[in-house]
């Protein structure tokens, strides 16, 4: 029966000791422990949040980088294309110019050549005429050296004229 009857002595000591324990633990154990643990929990949460934020930022940055890279690439392509076009144009232009120049040169050369030729021909003609005159003079001088010969020539010339 006394198993289920409370004993005042033990009740007194339990009360006293438990209250003391509660006071001591609340002040010197639970408070610092829970403060530290909760502070740590907060710290961890903050660190996690920061990590998430940083990761998002990194992702954003990466996306931006990729975008910039893509833009740069397309710009480069465009630049190369433009440069090629310009180069092609320049080459074509140069080619055309050269062609025109060449034709011009050839033409002027032709003109000069023909002019020279004409001059040379004229000169030749003049010289030939001179030579012919001198020859003719010589011939005529020889033919006219005697009366007979003058007569024969005159006849001959007259014949020629007739024949013509």
């Amino acid at each position: 029966m006394d198993l289920i009857l409370p004993d005042y002595g033990l009740l007194f000591w339990t009360g006293l000791v438990f209250c003391l324990l509660l006071f001591l633990l609340a002040k010197y154990a639970w408070k610092p422990i829970l403060n530290a643990v909760n502070a740590r929990e907060q710290k961890i949460q903050e660190a996690l949040d920061l990590a998430d934020k940083t990761r998002a930022e990194m992702q954003e940055l990466q996306a931006e980088n990729e975008k910039i890279l893509k833009e740069a690439r397309s710009e480069r392509d465009a630049l190369i294309k433009d440069a090629q076009e310009i180069a092609n144009k320049l080459v074509d232009e140069a080619k055309n110019k050269a062609k025109i120049e060449a034709t011009k040169i050839v033409e002027s050369a032709k003109v000069i050549i023909s002019m020279e030729k004409a001059a040379a021909l004229k000169d030749l003609k003049n010289q030939l005429a001179g030579y012919s005159l001198s020859i003719a003079e010589k011939i005529v001088r020889g033919d006219l050296a005697s009366d007979e010969k003058q007569k024969a020539l005159a006849n001959k010339l007259a014949d020629d004229i007739n024949m013509n």
């Binding site: 010197y28 154990a29 639970w30 422990i33 643990v37 502070a39």
Partner: peptide, 16 residues
């Protein structure tokens, strides 16, 4: 008390 105070001392000394 021994267990809890030494636990509390750990946190007092090392923080969170």
């Amino acid at each position: 008390l021994l267990i809890m105070l030494s636990t509390a001392r750990f946190y007092n000394k090392n923080g969170a």
